[in-house]
Amino acid sequence: MRETAYAKINLALHVRARREDGYHELETVFAFVDAGDELSVQPAPRDELRVVGEFAAGLTDPFGNIVARALSHLPHGPGGWRVTLDKRLPVAAGLGGGSADAGAVFRLVDRAHKLPDDWPQRAAKLGADVPACVASVTCIGRGTGTDLEPLDSDLTGTAVLLVNPRIPLATGPVFAGWNGIDRGPLPDGDARAIALTGRNDLEPSALALVPAIGDVLAALRGTAPLLARMSGSGATCFALYENADVMAAAAHRLRAAHPDWWQLQGKLR
Protein backbone atom coordinates (compact mmCIF):
# COMPACT_ATOMS: atom_id res chain seq x y z
CA MET A 1 0.00 0.00 0.00
CA ARG A 2 1.01 3.59 -0.57
CA GLU A 3 -0.17 6.78 1.09
CA THR A 4 0.70 10.47 0.89
CA ALA A 5 1.39 12.36 4.11
CA TYR A 6 -0.23 15.65 3.13
CA ALA A 7 1.61 18.82 4.16
CA LYS A 8 -0.29 20.75 6.83
CA ILE A 9 -0.56 24.53 6.85
CA ASN A 10 -2.28 26.85 9.30
CA LEU A 11 -4.42 29.32 7.40
CA ALA A 12 -4.69 31.22 10.69
CA LEU A 13 -3.21 30.54 14.12
CA HIS A 14 -4.41 32.53 17.13
CA VAL A 15 -2.67 31.90 20.46
CA ARG A 16 -5.05 32.73 23.29
CA ALA A 17 -3.31 31.77 26.54
CA ARG A 18 -0.51 29.83 28.19
CA ARG A 19 -1.64 26.75 30.10
CA GLU A 20 -0.27 25.43 33.37
CA ASP A 21 0.69 22.16 31.68
CA GLY A 22 3.14 23.99 29.42
CA TYR A 23 0.93 23.94 26.34
CA HIS A 24 -1.00 26.86 24.86
CA GLU A 25 -4.67 27.44 24.14
CA LEU A 26 -4.99 27.78 20.38
CA GLU A 27 -7.56 28.53 17.74
CA THR A 28 -6.41 27.54 14.28
CA VAL A 29 -7.61 26.57 10.83
CA PHE A 30 -5.83 23.49 9.57
CA ALA A 31 -5.61 23.03 5.80
CA PHE A 32 -3.73 20.48 3.73
CA VAL A 33 -1.81 20.53 0.48
CA ASP A 34 -2.26 17.71 -2.04
CA ALA A 35 1.42 16.71 -1.75
CA GLY A 36 3.91 15.79 0.95
CA ASP A 37 5.92 12.84 2.18
CA GLU A 38 5.20 9.41 0.69
CA LEU A 39 4.83 6.17 2.64
CA SER A 40 4.79 2.63 1.28
CA VAL A 41 4.20 -0.51 3.35
CA GLN A 42 4.67 -4.24 2.86
CA PRO A 43 3.99 -7.17 5.20
CA ALA A 44 7.00 -8.20 7.25
CA PRO A 45 7.77 -10.50 10.20
CA ARG A 46 8.18 -7.42 12.41
CA ASP A 47 7.90 -3.66 12.08
CA GLU A 48 10.73 -2.01 10.16
CA LEU A 49 11.22 1.59 9.08
CA ARG A 50 13.47 2.86 6.30
CA VAL A 51 13.74 6.60 5.68
CA VAL A 52 14.85 7.88 2.28
CA GLY A 53 14.49 11.14 0.36
CA GLU A 54 15.86 14.67 0.39
CA PHE A 55 15.27 15.29 4.09
CA ALA A 56 15.98 11.80 5.44
CA ALA A 57 19.12 13.02 7.20
CA GLY A 58 16.96 15.21 9.43
CA LEU A 59 15.48 12.11 11.08
CA THR A 60 18.37 10.62 12.99
CA ASP A 61 16.51 8.21 15.30
CA PRO A 62 14.37 5.73 13.33
CA PHE A 63 13.15 4.04 16.52
CA GLY A 64 11.94 7.35 17.95
CA ASN A 65 10.41 8.40 14.65
CA ILE A 66 6.72 9.18 14.92
CA VAL A 67 5.94 6.64 12.18
CA ALA A 68 7.39 3.86 14.31
CA ARG A 69 5.53 5.15 17.36
CA ALA A 70 2.26 5.37 15.42
CA LEU A 71 2.63 1.74 14.36
CA SER A 72 3.24 0.74 17.98
CA HIS A 73 -0.02 2.49 18.96
CA LEU A 74 -2.18 0.65 16.42
CA PRO A 75 -3.07 -3.01 15.73
CA HIS A 76 -1.86 -3.95 12.24
CA GLY A 77 -0.90 -7.64 12.50
CA PRO A 78 -0.40 -10.49 12.23
CA GLY A 79 3.31 -9.86 11.90
CA GLY A 80 4.49 -6.35 11.17
CA TRP A 81 4.94 -3.80 8.42
CA ARG A 82 8.03 -2.81 6.49
CA VAL A 83 7.55 0.93 6.00
CA THR A 84 9.52 3.12 3.62
CA LEU A 85 9.18 6.84 4.34
CA ASP A 86 10.20 9.11 1.47
CA LYS A 87 10.90 12.32 3.41
CA ARG A 88 10.10 15.10 0.93
CA LEU A 89 9.06 17.79 3.43
CA PRO A 90 11.67 19.69 5.43
CA VAL A 91 11.97 18.81 9.12
CA ALA A 92 11.05 21.33 11.87
CA ALA A 93 9.33 23.48 9.25
CA GLY A 94 5.82 24.27 10.48
CA LEU A 95 4.25 21.81 8.04
CA GLY A 96 3.35 19.12 10.56
CA GLY A 97 5.61 16.75 8.65
CA GLY A 98 5.93 14.18 11.42
CA SER A 99 2.26 14.52 12.32
CA ALA A 100 1.34 14.13 8.66
CA ASP A 101 3.45 10.96 8.49
CA ALA A 102 1.63 9.60 11.54
CA GLY A 103 -1.72 10.55 10.02
CA ALA A 104 -0.82 8.59 6.90
CA VAL A 105 -0.05 5.55 9.07
CA PHE A 106 -3.51 5.84 10.65
CA ARG A 107 -5.12 5.94 7.18
CA LEU A 108 -3.11 2.91 6.07
CA VAL A 109 -4.15 0.95 9.16
CA ASP A 110 -7.76 1.99 8.60
CA ARG A 111 -7.58 0.75 5.01
CA ALA A 112 -6.08 -2.58 6.01
CA HIS A 113 -7.75 -3.35 9.33
CA LYS A 114 -10.07 -0.47 10.34
CA LEU A 115 -9.05 1.85 13.13
CA PRO A 116 -10.03 1.14 16.74
CA ASP A 117 -12.81 3.30 18.16
CA ASP A 118 -10.40 5.19 20.41
CA TRP A 119 -8.10 6.24 17.57
CA PRO A 120 -8.52 10.00 18.29
CA GLN A 121 -7.08 9.52 21.77
CA ARG A 122 -4.23 7.41 20.41
CA ALA A 123 -3.50 10.06 17.78
CA ALA A 124 -3.50 12.89 20.34
CA LYS A 125 -0.91 11.05 22.44
CA LEU A 126 1.48 11.25 19.48
CA GLY A 127 1.13 14.99 18.99
CA ALA A 128 -1.34 17.86 18.99
CA ASP A 129 -1.52 18.02 15.17
CA VAL A 130 -1.91 14.29 14.59
CA PRO A 131 -5.73 14.02 14.97
CA ALA A 132 -6.23 16.70 12.30
CA CYS A 133 -3.66 15.02 10.05
CA VAL A 134 -5.53 11.70 10.10
CA ALA A 135 -8.40 13.05 8.00
CA SER A 136 -6.21 15.76 6.39
CA VAL A 137 -9.17 17.99 5.53
CA THR A 138 -9.76 21.63 6.39
CA CYS A 139 -11.02 22.04 9.95
CA ILE A 140 -10.83 24.27 13.01
CA GLY A 141 -8.64 23.18 15.91
CA ARG A 142 -9.08 24.46 19.46
CA GLY A 143 -7.51 23.69 22.83
CA THR A 144 -4.01 22.44 22.05
CA GLY A 145 -5.23 21.77 18.51
CA THR A 146 -6.82 18.40 19.21
CA ASP A 147 -10.41 19.63 19.66
CA LEU A 148 -11.57 19.60 16.05
CA GLU A 149 -14.58 21.19 14.40
CA PRO A 150 -15.58 20.61 10.76
CA LEU A 151 -15.32 23.57 8.41
CA ASP A 152 -16.62 23.46 4.85
CA SER A 153 -13.79 24.79 2.74
CA ASP A 154 -14.40 27.20 -0.10
CA LEU A 155 -10.62 27.12 -0.67
CA THR A 156 -10.44 23.51 -1.87
CA GLY A 157 -8.52 23.47 -5.14
CA THR A 158 -6.84 26.82 -4.46
CA ALA A 159 -3.27 27.02 -5.81
CA VAL A 160 -0.71 27.17 -3.01
CA LEU A 161 3.05 27.68 -2.95
CA LEU A 162 5.15 26.64 0.06
CA VAL A 163 8.58 28.18 0.58
CA ASN A 164 11.15 27.43 3.28
CA PRO A 165 14.57 29.10 3.65
CA ARG A 166 16.06 25.71 4.60
CA ILE A 167 16.52 26.74 8.22
CA PRO A 168 15.06 24.29 10.78
CA LEU A 169 13.03 25.94 13.53
CA ALA A 170 11.96 24.00 16.62
CA THR A 171 8.44 24.61 17.87
CA GLY A 172 9.30 25.03 21.57
CA PRO A 173 11.39 28.22 21.36
CA VAL A 174 8.82 29.86 19.06
CA PHE A 175 5.97 29.29 21.51
CA ALA A 176 8.24 30.37 24.38
CA GLY A 177 8.77 33.66 22.58
CA TRP A 178 5.05 34.43 22.28
CA ASN A 179 4.43 37.75 24.03
CA GLY A 180 1.43 36.45 26.00
CA ILE A 181 -1.01 38.99 24.56
CA ASP A 182 -4.40 37.57 23.57
CA ARG A 183 -5.27 39.39 20.35
CA GLY A 184 -8.70 37.79 20.05
CA PRO A 185 -10.44 34.74 18.63
CA LEU A 186 -10.70 33.46 15.10
CA PRO A 187 -13.09 35.54 13.01
CA ASP A 188 -16.38 34.04 11.92
CA GLY A 189 -17.01 32.95 8.37
CA ASP A 190 -15.91 30.41 5.82
CA ALA A 191 -12.33 29.21 5.36
CA ARG A 192 -11.47 32.00 2.92
CA ALA A 193 -12.82 34.74 5.19
CA ILE A 194 -11.00 33.37 8.23
CA ALA A 195 -7.75 33.06 6.30
CA LEU A 196 -7.90 36.57 4.88
CA THR A 197 -8.84 38.27 8.16
CA GLY A 198 -7.00 35.99 10.60
CA ARG A 199 -3.36 36.03 11.60
CA ASN A 200 -0.47 33.91 12.88
CA ASP A 201 0.43 35.03 16.39
CA LEU A 202 3.72 33.10 16.27
CA GLU A 203 5.20 35.11 13.39
CA PRO A 204 6.93 37.74 15.60
CA SER A 205 8.74 35.21 17.80
CA ALA A 206 9.66 33.06 14.77
CA LEU A 207 11.02 36.12 12.97
CA ALA A 208 13.17 36.96 16.00
CA LEU A 209 14.73 33.51 15.80
CA VAL A 210 14.95 33.21 11.99
CA PRO A 211 14.94 36.64 10.31
CA ALA A 212 15.02 34.93 6.90
CA ILE A 213 11.30 34.25 7.37
CA GLY A 214 10.76 37.95 6.74
CA ASP A 215 12.64 37.66 3.45
CA VAL A 216 10.44 34.75 2.39
CA LEU A 217 7.24 36.59 3.29
CA ALA A 218 8.38 39.72 1.47
CA ALA A 219 9.25 37.72 -1.62
CA LEU A 220 5.89 35.92 -1.59
CA ARG A 221 3.95 39.13 -1.04
CA GLY A 222 5.72 40.58 -4.05
CA THR A 223 4.05 38.00 -6.31
CA ALA A 224 0.50 39.36 -5.83
CA PRO A 225 -1.00 36.43 -3.91
CA LEU A 226 -4.40 36.30 -2.29
CA LEU A 227 -2.57 35.76 0.99
CA ALA A 228 0.97 35.11 2.22
CA ARG A 229 1.57 33.95 5.78
CA MET A 230 3.87 31.82 7.89
CA SER A 231 2.59 28.33 8.66
CA GLY A 232 2.51 27.00 12.21
CA SER A 233 5.68 27.84 14.11
CA GLY A 234 7.67 28.33 10.89
CA ALA A 235 9.92 28.61 9.10
CA THR A 236 7.81 27.59 6.08
CA CYS A 237 5.56 30.26 4.59
CA PHE A 238 2.73 29.79 2.12
CA ALA A 239 0.99 31.88 -0.49
CA LEU A 240 -2.46 31.32 -2.00
CA TYR A 241 -3.17 32.31 -5.61
CA GLU A 242 -6.21 32.80 -7.83
CA ASN A 243 -5.05 30.09 -10.25
CA ALA A 244 -2.23 27.64 -10.91
CA ASP A 245 -0.68 29.72 -13.70
CA VAL A 246 -0.12 32.70 -11.40
CA MET A 247 1.29 30.37 -8.76
CA ALA A 248 3.64 28.69 -11.25
CA ALA A 249 4.91 32.07 -12.42
CA ALA A 250 5.53 33.11 -8.81
CA ALA A 251 7.38 29.86 -8.13
CA HIS A 252 9.59 30.39 -11.20
CA ARG A 253 10.34 33.95 -10.13
CA LEU A 254 11.30 32.94 -6.59
CA ARG A 255 13.39 30.00 -7.76
CA ALA A 256 15.40 32.28 -10.02
CA ALA A 257 15.93 34.85 -7.26
CA HIS A 258 16.46 32.37 -4.39
CA PRO A 259 17.68 29.01 -5.77
CA ASP A 260 18.67 27.91 -2.26
CA TRP A 261 15.10 28.07 -0.91
CA TRP A 262 12.95 24.93 -0.81
CA GLN A 263 9.54 25.17 -2.41
CA LEU A 264 6.52 23.01 -3.15
CA GLN A 265 3.66 23.76 -5.55
CA GLY A 266 0.23 22.25 -5.01
CA LYS A 267 -3.46 22.74 -4.36
CA LEU A 268 -5.44 22.79 -1.13
CA ARG A 269 -7.41 19.61 -0.50
Rank of each mutant, 00 (worst) to 15 (best):
A104K: 05
D129L: 04
W81I: 09
T156K: 12
R111N: 00
S99E: 12
L71T: 02
V91W: 09
D129A: 02
D154F: 01
V83K: 04
R82N: 13
L74D: 11
G97F: 08
L115N: 09
V163Q: 00
G157T: 12
V163C: 06
V83A: 02
A112C: 13
R142C: 01
W119I: 05
K125L: 14
L95K: 06
D129T: 05
G97W: 02
L59N: 11
L155H: 04
D117A: 15
V163M: 01
D152I: 13
G97E: 09
D86T: 14
P62G: 02
R142I: 06
I66T: 14
D86Q: 15
W119C: 00
F63A: 14
W119D: 05
N65A: 07
C133I: 00
W119Q: 04
L71E: 00
T158E: 12
G96M: 04
D154Y: 06
L169T: 03
I140Y: 04
H76F: 12
A104T: 09
G64I: 13
C133A: 03
V137T: 15
A57E: 15
R69D: 10
G77W: 05
D118K: 08
I66G: 03
L71C: 01
A102I: 07
D117N: 14
I140D: 02
K125D: 14
G77V: 05
I140Q: 05
D152E: 15
W119G: 02
R69M: 06
A92S: 14
G157Q: 09
L74H: 07
G64R: 09
G97Y: 08
L115Y: 08
A159C: 09
G145I: 06
P150D: 04
I140L: 15
A92F: 08
L59G: 03
K125C: 13
D101N: 15
V163T: 06
G143Q: 00
P62S: 08
T60R: 15
G94F: 13
D129R: 04
G77E: 04
K114C: 12
P150S: 07
V83N: 04
Q121M: 13
S72T: 12
K125I: 13
R122Y: 06
A132C: 04
P165E: 01
D118G: 08
S153E: 05
P90S: 14
F106C: 06
A102T: 07
D118Y: 10
P120A: 10
V130M: 03
P131K: 09
V160D: 05
R166P: 01
P78R: 02
I66W: 06
A102G: 08
D147I: 15
P168D: 10
V91H: 13
A123I: 11
P90A: 13
V83G: 04
D154C: 05
V109F: 03
L85N: 08
V137H: 13
K114W: 07
G103D: 09
A92R: 05
S72C: 03
P90D: 14
S136F: 00
H76T: 10
K125R: 15
C133R: 01
A56Q: 09
P168A: 07
L155K: 04
A123N: 09
L108H: 05
L126K: 02
P120G: 09
L148T: 04
A92Q: 15
V160F: 05
G127P: 01
L155I: 11
G145L: 05
I167Y: 00
V91S: 10
L155G: 01
P131Y: 11
R166W: 00
L108D: 02
T60E: 14
G80Q: 11
G98A: 10
